[in-house]
Each structure stands twice: as C-alpha cells, then as structure tokens.
Design a protein around this nucleic acid. Sequence first.
RNA 1: GCGGGGAUGCCAGAGUGGUCUAAUGGGACGGAUUUAGGCUCCGUUGGCUCAGUGCCUUCCUAGGUUCAAAUCCUAGUCCCCGCACCA
Length: 896
Amino acid sequence: MPKKSTFSDSEPNIFSFNEIEKKWQRRWEEAKVFEAVPDKRNKFFINFPYPYINGHLHLGHAFSVTRVDVAARYKRMNGFNVLFPQGWHCTGTPVWAAAQRIREKEEKQIQIMKTMGFSEKEILKFGEVKHWMDTFVPAAQEDLSRIGASVDWRRSFVTTDLNPYYDKFIRWQFNKLREKGLVVKGKRPVVWCVKDKMVVGDHDRAEGEGETPQEYYLLKFKFGDSYLIAATLRPETVFGQTNFWVNPDANYVKARIGNETWIVSKECLDKLELQEKDTKMMEYISGKDLIGKHCEAPLIGRKIMILPARFVDPTMGTGLVTSVPSDAPYDYIALRNMQEMKETEKNKLGFSIEQIEEIEDIEIIPIIKTEKYGDKAAVKVVEESGVVNQEDPKLDSLTQEVYKEGYHNGILLNNCGEYSGMKVKEAKEKMKEDMIKKGLLEIFYELSGKVVCRCLTPSVVKIVSDQWFLKYGDKEWKEKVRKELEGMKLYPDLVRQQFNYVIGWLNDWACTHHHGAGTKLPWDEHWVIESLSDSTIYMAYYTIAHLIKEYPLDKIDDSFFDYVLLGEGKGSKEMDKMRKEFEYWYPFDVRSSGKDLVQNHLSFCMFNHAAIFPEKHWPKSFSVNGWLLVEGDKMSKSKGNFFTIRQVLEKHSADSVRAGLMMGGEGLDDPNFGFANVEIVTQKIHGFFEFARLNYKKAKKAELSRSDRLFVSSINRYLKEGSEAMENMMFRTAFDKLFFQMQRVLKEYINRGGSNQGVLNDFIEIQIKIIAPFCPHVAEELWNKIGKKEFISLAEWPQVEENKIDTKLEESEKGVDKTVADVLNVLSIVKEKTRKEGEKVYVYVMPFELEHYNAELLSRRVQKEVKIFAVNDKNKYDPEGKAGKAKPGKPGIYVE
RNA sequence: GCGGGGAUGCCAGAGUGGUCUAAUGGGACGGAUUUAGGCUCCGUUGGCUCAGUGCCUUCCUAGGUUCAAAUCCUAGUCCCCGCACCA
C-alpha cells in the first residue's frame, strides 16, 4: 500500500520535489532572473574557483557552489544586484595527459572511462582535450542548474587556447606582468625521465609519489691534480672528517667538469650533465685503485685516508662519501668494522703495516654537542641500538634521528674554527656560503627517494635553466600584497594568520611548463602557462565574458584589455560598454574556496591583483571553508562514499541536499555531509510545506495575546541572529536559527494553543523567505501557493522588528517552564507515594510570575487539571487544607 | 622540523571568568495518544540523594592564577591541515 497522503483538502497530492524543482528552474531561466545586468543598485559579485573538468562534478563541488549560491541569493533578497558567474578550468596536465593515454590506448585510463559509464566507441573520442570539454562542461552546467545555483550562464567560458578569447586575456596578463618585470627567467630542479625526456609529475609516477629533488652539497677533496667529490647533506660536519669512503667494487670516472678534473661514479657523471655541468669524460678508475691513498679534506685542509666501505652506493650522490664517524652512524660502523678487522684481512686488502697502523690510529673527532646525544651522537645511537654491520636497515632511521637532533639542537664545539659555538642550523648556512666562495662546495640535487616514471625508467633530477618564474619572492611585491590583505575581509578571520605566513614564505613560482593544456607564453611559445598561474585574475574576465564573445576576435589585442580592464588608451563603442560593465562589477566582493587553496591560488590571486590592478579593484574578501567529508570520512571511491552531484540528485531533492550540505558544517572545520541530515530536512521541509499551505488564510489583525507576543519575540530574535550568521557566511548556524529553531518555536506556539491568524500569516511569510536561499525551489512553490505573484528569489529579506523582541517575556516563559517541571516532579513523587486510585491530591508549587499565565494553559502543559489562586485568603488556595506549606501573599497553583 | 587550527556529555556542536551539568539538534530509553506506527506530545539521558529547588564529580592530562575557570596562564599528550611549481 502506498503511504496515504496527509492532505486533508480536496487537492491532489502534487508535492513532488522533483516536479517543483524542474518547474522553477525553467521559470527562472525563462524570466532571466539570474542574468546580471548593471543598474542603479549596489552590486554584489561573488564567485568560486572554476572546477577542473576531468569528470563529473562531485559533492565537494556541490558544497562550494551551495555556499556561494546561498550567499548570492541572500544578497539578492537584500536588494543587491548580484553577479554569480561560473567558468570551467581545463588548463594543465591531468586532462591533457589522460587524453594522451587514451590515444595510447592505455588500459588503466580506458578502465577509468568505462567506470564513468562511457562506451568503447565514445571513449576513443576522449583522446582529444576538446572532447572532455564538450562532454563535461555541459554536464557540469546541468548539474549546477539542477542543484539550483543562481548562475548567470551567459558569462561562462573554458580556459586554454581552445577558447581564443580567454587565451588572449591570459596573454595580455602575462605581457603585463613581464612589462612590470615580474616574470623572470631562472633555473629549477625537476624530476626528470631520461627516456621520455619529460618532467615526471607526481601523477605520472609508477613509484615515488611525493618525492622531490633535495639539495645536496658536493665537497671537493684535493687528490693530486684532480678532486674527489663527495656528496653530503651535512656540510657543517667537515671538522669531524676522519677518512674518506669509496666502494671498492664500483667504477669511477675521471672527468673534466668545467675547468676542474673530478672523480665521481659513472652514474653520477650522467646526472651532473643533466644538472648543467659541462662534462667531458676522461678515463675510468676502479674503486680499488683509490684505497689507501690520501686526499685533502676541504675547508680544514686535513689529509685523510681513503678506505673501502660496502655501504657506499655508486648510484647515490657521487658514489663517494666523506666520513664523519662522530655524527654519521654509517661512518661510525664502517670505521669500527675497519679497525676491528683482522690484520690478515687488512693485508689482503693490500694495506702496508704503516697503513694498518694509520687506520688503527684514526680517532673519532667530536664536533657537535646536543643534550640528548652528547658529543658523539652516532656512537651513542649505534651502541644503544646494537647495530653491528653496515647492511643493517636500522641505520637509515638512526641517521635521520641524529641528523634531526643535531640540526635543530646541536651546537658546534670549539674545535670548529670560526664556527665554534655556533648553532648547527646557523653554521650550516654560513659554512655552505663560505665554501661556495672558496670553490670547495657546489650544489647538487638528488631525489629524496626512489622515483620511477610511468614508462618504468628510474627518474633523476634535471635542472631546467630557461624556466620562467613569477617573482612572488619580490620584497616590494610582497609589501603591496600585505597592504592588500589588511584591507580585505576574511571569512573566517582566523585564516588571516595563515595568509600572512604564506605571503612571507612564498617564493618565485615556476609559471611555465613543457607540456599540458593552456595558453602559450606569448614571447616564448614553446612554454605553456601553468594552470595556477593562468587563473589569478580571471574573475575580471567574468565581467565581460558575455560581451567579448560578440566582439571580433581579430580586433582583440593587448590594447583592448588595457582599455577595458585598466582604462588606458582609447576604445570603440563596444569596448566602452565592456569597460562600463567591468567598472560596475569590479572588484569582486567574495571569492569562496577550500582552505587548501590558501597557500597557492588565493595568495596568487592577491599577488596578481596587486600587480596589475589599481587598489580600488583589489579583492574585497575571501571566504575559506574546509574539505567536505561524506558520512564522516574523506570522500573516496574505495570507501564507497564518493558521489557525483547527479548521483545524489537521482535519489534526493536538490533543496534537501543543499540544506544537508549547509548543515554539515561551517568555518574552517571539515564539514560533514550525512544522508541522515538530508532525510531530516526533507521531512521537516515537507512538514512545513503542508503547514504553510493549510494555515495561510485571510485574517483580520487580532490583538496579540501573551502567547502571540512570545512567539513574535522569538521569531524576531532568531531572525536577527540568523541574519547575522548569514552576513558572516556561517550558514550552518544560519540554517539552524532560521529554520530549525523557527520551527521549534512554531511548535511551541501551536502547543500553547496559538492560533492568531495574523501572526501565523506573518510567520509563514517570513519562514518561506528565510529558507529561500537554502531551499529555493520549495520556497518559490510555497510563495506561489500562498498567492504571491513575484519570485521569492527576488523578494525582500524580512526586516527584524527589534521592538518586538521581548527578552523579559521570554525569560518569564522560562520561569513558567520551570514551574511546570516542578509540578510534574512533585506529582510523580506523590503518585509513587500514594498509589491510591481515585484519591484526590493537592499539590502546592511555588510558582513563577503566574499573573501572566492561565490555568488552562498550565493544564495543557501538565496534562492535569490545574487551578491558580491568589493566596490572599488561606482557604482559597487550598480548600481542603491539604496542599502543604504555602506562603500567604503569593499566588499558588493547585493541582487536583 | 616549520607554520596554522583543534580536543566539550552516546554523537554532532554552542559556549571565552560567576547566571554552566553546560544551548541546540540527533540518537537511546521511559511514558502519553494510537488498531498500529516511521506522525505528534511529555519526560529521562554523570553519580549520589530525595515530599521538593541538596551534595559530589565533570568540558584531553597535570600544575597554576582567582573569592570564582570549560573559559585565563604554564607544561605535556593526542588529532587535523599546509610546507609549493600540483589541480
């Protein structure tokens, strides 16, 4: 049996969220309700970062868009001319690379497309980036429309050179930045595949996600007319060097590096070449041939002996290692092994008696002191851990530990020359600089861990030398941005510290890539502008996006944008129109985004605005929110809590999902979306829908009773608090106050017997209006049902009537609540004690301000017959003298 | 390691010196209504005590400041996020 309708009148049950949503979305579109046209009103421009369209939009997007939409609708109802545009992002590598993989018919990628529900035939089309746009952009627009986003779709666009208009805009932006000297050429280390001859991004790896190039230091040890080169992370330990390690089984090469002769492993030579060294191979040297000889340690000038060690890996660094047994566990173990080796074995290695003596005389030199490990950290940790040979895997973590402690808490001992007494942290920098100056040290990059390219070739570090950078490290620029930040409002303000910090450490940003979709760098077209860099000031483009499409493409050049966006030079009539539109809307009032974008996108947005636009066009505010959790967990396909918008909308109404999302959370905490909330909202909204429809009636204004005034007071209080929350983009609080609390006080009012039709009508109107930003479809339908002609989307947000907020009255009601509780309490006790059926019991309860209350209402609350007496006359309040201790002179209540 | 944010009752989540056993919502439990209930209503939900507004113990832990602390200070423990060239 289908559930029986709760409709009591003759009208058939037409309540279908689905129907209502479709109907109003159609009407909004027909009436162009959300098309933003400049006029005399104040404007409000809100937006959020355009989604990257590598698939269907998911619940996380729904959360972002709902936040923005609720704000947009709220502002619209507050009389603002609201602009909420939406574009789509396709710049960068993910889609580009996926398309390429489809072309290569890579099984994994094809499988991904299959799970998205595409047929074999269709999948092949995704070999072109454009097909991704053609598929997912319309789908995304449909999804956002279905969830009720009040977007001006005329202004939508996609990025990359597939959109020549936007492409020209980005070119203009970069030319502008270059003119100002903010785009410069530089070098940077990248993870590189020698086979593919390409940068190996994090997503293109078979192994080694998260690994990055790490700075190592090459130390030069004088060795005859050449240098032995050792790679180290710890140049500050040079004073503790006791010997030098070489792998006896490895092959080394002597090579011309610049105008020096270096000895390094064969593997290292290839790396040096990729790291901009001018190399020329000379001859091979066997590791064995080096053993027993001496070289001169850099900076300290000490002669140290070259000894064999198994732990030395020719593929790591230079394949040569300097030995600091006091602070390097590997070195200590290797040295101890060496010294403890039987004489016969040492002989076997070809050491002479003098050499053997020399080895035995090597003493560990303490150089760094920490509270935790004393002055021979490596010795201490190795002895304590019981490690005895060089192959022990524990050595890696011990090394880490010693390094960490030494670096952060260590102090150099007084045998360290001019660095004696310095903190390790500081000494490291200084020694590094000094040694570079003296030509004893060079910087080298090695991967922080093993990285394997998708083509299964191990990756290496390459230095790209003609890389273009945005000069975010520039001091003057930073100053300007700090000033910009000061003038901005942040929701919540908590993120201000984070922004300040980011502005501080942000350094020059590599803004060009070798490959990927995007705009080509105008003056150096073999570079593609990287995706975060092309999305910094595009909000300005929204203001003209719908007009520029109508303008002849060939007439658009840099001077076009100079005029339209900066007001420089002269422009045509059409350009003038665009200029006016820009000036009306810009700057944007709110940009809302996830907190993950604080350290890049939002900061870049500030930087580029500061660089290109005058102060009056700098951003007004950012709103930052957490990452959406679903059912308490991070969304992930493997956990089964990943949902696209369309999946969710198949089963749930847009209004409920919107409200459910907003109920999930606010502020910087990760909001949590649960379907239970969606169900609750669905029920409550439906409940209110019925209530409003059936209870909105014609009425004359009746005089307000105490109960009425109490109700009106609560409504106004929640309206006030809710509106404040709306202003602060605290939408969970707002929805709670504006809907749940409102419904609660309505319930209380009805329970009190409230029935003043005028009051009810006012309430219904207010309630519909204030849920409209959250549940716009139902609100429109209801608004229409109660006979209003205009769209609720354009109705006026209700004004708080401060004078109707009666705190005293609400307090007194709390007192009544307490009295009722007391009565019930006493009654239950009495009931337990007497247990006699039919016996009359009289109870006296010290009441609270009963002059405003009446017996009928109390009876309803207590569910017993209640009488109230003024206790002036003893006999009146307790006719049978059984109610116990009453206090004459005060009113009392009497329960039978 | 650096930087930022946190830790509140079964759960979520308010609360920044007294009005705090701590809002509100959900859950659970008990009761009322009911043919029945997923509707609605009332109540309970730290412990003890109880013919009545009482006592004790609680807001991560340990100290401290104060007449008074969930709230301020100090130390510690644990959790989340970011640390880049990637959307």
